[in-house]
Design a protein around this nucleic acid. Sequence first.
RNA 1: AGUCAGUUAGCUCAGUGGUAGAGCACUACCUUGACACGGUAGGGGUCAACAGUUCAAAUCUGUUACUGACUACCA
Length: 898
Amino acid sequence: MEIPKSYNPKEAEATHYQTWEANNCFAPEINENPNAKPFSIVIPPPNVTGSLHIGHALQHTLMDVLTRWKRMLGYRTLFLVGVDHAGISTQLMVTRQLKKDEHKMPPDIGREAFVEKVWAWKNRYGDTITNQIRREGLSVDWSRERFTMDESLSKAVREVFVRLYEEGWIYRGKRIVNWCPKDKTVLSDLEVKEETKKDGKLFYLNYPVKDSDVKLTVATTRPETMLGDAAVAVNPDDERYRDLIGKTIELPLTGREIPIIADEYVDTNFGTGAVKITPAHDPNDYEIGLRHDLPQISVMNQDATMNAEAGAEFEGLERYKAREKVVEKFEELGLLEKIDDYEMVLPVCERCKTVVEPFLSEQWFVKMSEMRDLALDLMRTEESPHFYPRVPHEKVYTVWLENLKDWTISRQLWWGHQIPAWYDEAGNIYVARTKEAAMEQAKTAKLMQDADVLDTWFSSALWAFSTLGWDGETTETEDLKLFYPTDVLVTGRDIIFLWVSRMVMSGLKFTGEKPFKDVIIHGTVLDKNGQRMSKTKGNGVDPLDVFDKYGVDATRITLAGSSTGVDFAWRDEKVESFRNFANKIWNATRFCLMNSEGAKVDAASLTNAESLNDRWIISRLNKTTFALNKALATYQFHEAVQILYHFFWDDFCDWYIELVKDEITSDTVNTKRDAARTRILTILEQALRLLHPFMPFLTEELWQKLPEVSSKLHNDAYQNAPQTIMLADFPTGDAALTDERAESEMQIVIELISKVRNIRAEMNIKPGDKPAIHVAANIDLQKIFQSNEAQILKLARAEKLQIAESLDVPKASAKAVLTGGAEIALPLEGLIDFAKEGERLKNQFEKLNVEGERLNGQLSNRSFVEKAPEEKVSDLRARIAEINLQKRALEQNLDALL
RNA sequence: AGUCAGUUAGCUCAGUGGUAGAGCACUACCUUGACACGGUAGGGGUCAACAGUUCAAAUCUGUUACUGACUACCA
């Protein structure tokens, strides 16, 4: 078989995914075991407008590793995929295109036509993200793909809305909300981000007190809102203003008179200690307004221009123009005290970055107190969901819930789930599942549906069960029974509040069960300088570029191997090293295949091993298998990757292949050679299975090349499926095959070879020169060295191995001491540099000496001997004995040199 | 302002009480029939500082410094 010298990911990535998908390998139905335990994950639905970024690649890899692992273990696995309609971002994107292509705005074409355009857009571009998911190799079940605006999911949304309304948990009301003047919609608290403005100003305005010469100075960052002032507030304990409480202000520019009131809210140390109160344009002022029964004077329109209430002079002015004009007027009136520079933090719209205006408006809200308690009770009673890592997320989640405010769910958009509420001509509200039902309630057909749609996260909150068939009417399906609650949710920190908490609350409320058992919160991928990636900085890493450059598998295992729950800096060098790892796997397999005549994959070859190196590698393989399964079971992805990397590269390639190379490449055809070839092939095949969840393409490509692989190697649940490594039985380890004795015996052989190599390097022995190795050792060690003579000679590049009870070598020899007191010597007449050899031995002696002194110090500490566990003390004694033994030998060697 | 996290080899990061680890980078040697995307042998860290608990601290506690994240407020 002709195999290229290096792995080309493109070929493997081009074919296998299609085969897997075409053979329905991803669907749970591939599992033929009726008693198989279920395992399910739902993907956090990416935005339909979106394209893959490196954070997705990380999150998706972790989910796919778990899914492939469980599938190979024989679980009935469902990895459910789908996309989110992403209300605001999609609407913005289509609006932008409409503007560009037709120079029109949505109102120009009307709601119906606009929504049609969004659907067309979705159908045209919506598969960008899903094709990218295929590229990543995700083993998701495409037959169950969902979209948040599918009819069934939309029905679930209406159902939930109606039920919550009927219970009084959804209400409509006039509140101060976060208003985006550009998108002209309300935003929830979580959709508002902060932006620091360094060149902000704090304006000090003088308000004349009626019937006096006194002026009260108030400070504000938004002078234009003074047009809507309803009062000035001071702290009741503030001596400076005590006399003024109850008096009246003649509010400049408006001709209105407003009271001076006392309220504890006012901080006497900030600004002037007197605060202008604008109930319609500030959330705190709104609260104060309610307490003091102040009028709510709204002076702005929805686009943040001033309205008629602001007065004729200001009406129609944009908010910042109005600000300038107000300041000008105050200056003209001699009422502008001063302007200070002031660094401030502004709330901005998460999507369009426009400064959000606190705005008095009528909206729909979900009352969170009861919903919140459901989630808090779950945490209290079951400590669920279990966060990985638990610190800090469990606490952050809990504290957030405890302080949760009501959720604004209406959005002034057209793209999304339209609110199932209707109004009659008198303005009465009818909330119902359908228009017909609403008409029945209203006893009239003259109804107008609420124009608003629901927050995108309202439908996302139902994702874990609406995708499995729950629509309010149907509440039990096969999928729900099998796959709900899901096993684990994998997601980023930023949506714990937006999504995780809301899924928990709605899951508990509507299914009576939590939506998932575990929540894995992965870290953020930062750029190579440790900075957050962002479009404006242009420092993002495009996973598709990385795939092209290094291959999908290398990228996947890099991401998994970096994942410990904390943020990490992206480095191309890391992927490069895993690209090299992929190549190493490729070439190890290439070696086995080049010598595979007469061999096949045969599990029996793992149980009938006799030689030390075979028993050793089989023991290593089993320990690796145990450790890997354990690491995955606790979501320790970094650990899992380390385990695999170390086993494959160090144990299998650097030692095992080299140890058995001669035997395997022998020209002599015999059963011994066949057995050795079968064994290495079998071990390799097991290793490929262990690697498969991380590196699906490479392992499939290689596995299919192995002689006589078939679906017989599949897990029992997949015996009839077309042969693929993704359905192979995942090794779980066999305790009978771990062999501590083989491992420690091999360790001493490795030590011997390494020490000889060290001497060779230090003494500059040419690779072609083959010295003799003299070994002095006890009977047990003699046997071990004797039976591994061929391997020792080959790997140490030596001529012969002279084993005796004591050393008898010429003075011109380089020596070393092994664990257990064995000694080695290489006669190097004419090659040895005595000064260098003396230096080398002294260095080793010194190292041992330092360690010995430290340990002796510890041992002479009486309290250590008394209080430390016996085992630790005896370990220490043994180590000291070992050190003394080696030191004595080194001393003798040094003496012999002089 | 509050809460939390981090500070370990030149770089990126593992490591939760018992002799400091990996990858990359670095040095020397090596085209040894799987692989130079390779092999062999090396060098390199008083685990941020200080104090405490302990027979024993990178690991537990406290304080400080720096970095970062989140939450709230900001007239």
